[in-house]
Nucleic acid binder design. Sequence first.
DNA 1: GATAAGATAGTAATAGATTACTTACTTTTG
DNA 2: CAAAAGTAAGTAATCTATTACTATCTTATC
Lengths: 202, 202
Amino acid sequence: MSEHPKHLPADERRAATVEAVINLAAEQNPSDITTTAIAQRMGLTQGALFRHFPTKDAILEAVMTWVAERLLSRIDKAAQNIVSPLAALEAVFMAHIDFVSEHPGVPRMLFGELQRPGETLPKRMVQTLIQRYAERLRHLLARGKATGELDASLDIEAASVSFIGAIQGLVMQSLIAGDAARIRRDAPGVFAIYRRGIGNAS
Amino acid sequence: MSEHPKHLPADERRAATVEAVINLAAEQNPSDITTTAIAQRMGLTQGALFRHFPTKDAILEAVMTWVAERLLSRIDKAAQNIVSPLAALEAVFMAHIDFVSEHPGVPRMLFGELQRPGETLPKRMVQTLIQRYAERLRHLLARGKATGELDASLDIEAASVSFIGAIQGLVMQSLIAGDAARIRRDAPGVFAIYRRGIGNAS
DNA sequence: GATAAGATAGTAATAGATTACTTACTTTTG
DNA sequence: CAAAAGTAAGTAATCTATTACTATCTTATC
């Protein structure tokens, strides 16, 4: 096996392609990412991409699969072994913040896909991802009501939307400031307000 | 003056162009809006647009001006004559929700502009808009702390980010559900959580 | 174990579609 | 009639995807 093989096996190239897209999305409007830019980032010619993916949408599909797996597994791991539902929510929040700090392009790609008209496969995958995410939130919120940690009259649906919105607000703030590191710094303060908003007042 | 003049004066065409872009943004990814699509919506040929705007970016610039004026004037009017800072925050929240319900493409355009690399003029206008918006929020939040309606230890910066995030979360939710009307319906529940998060517990 | 064969992964060039913008000319309006 | 507003056609650039060809890797056979 040579040090710098010019030909990589298909699965490694597919993984490298996903990585290139994620990195590019951190630097520019995700919907303006071209196949030329992806190939250039990988040190390949543009046409080479189509050895591994039939269309550009298939690339986005692979990216969405990658994101869904990583994000959900991270938040599942974060909530694992935490008894208190409220503490678990905080762990999920911070795990999510860590994820978007490492991959600032990801939330922007998701939001961008959601805006596409019609019923593309990548769009449907994002919808599914967020629905699965919201399910986990609703489960934790319901448990919190049961234990009494959360307000008994809490609107679980609104609390779930607010949770995602809190993260989205941090992403937007970092875009305005042009500083991705801001997300991590401002996250605790934002979660503190959220926590207070859903917590049991007594 | 004929009933249906084929030639409109420049200022009316400019206003109609802005309206066409706002409407198109509600239906598709704002960054995919073409000059052909704008012209078609107006019943013109594509080249006619360039009689009134030197470049496509100049069109976006006009749209951003329109949005900034309308949105800020609406929330100023909403907060006017409301003594309680907390009640004023709620009025601003609902006025903003009304605005995005009428123009679902607007928050998506703003978010899209923020993602563009470099320092384009439309992008800078969005940053300025949101900064001015946040200023008004911080002012109301500070007043709320002074009156005792809000928690004395409240992190005003985090509260401002959370406010914008709450709206952004509702926008995202409506995109996932593919139902713009959801925003208005879910808004009160989301604001209730926010209100509780910043309010004085006593 | 070397090596030929076949599959896999790459390049360079280009096609075909679409984009923002221009130009030469025509219609409408005051 | 002159200025303003619109059309139709075209240009140059850019984008996804394809094609014809080449380089590299894997593997079966002697």
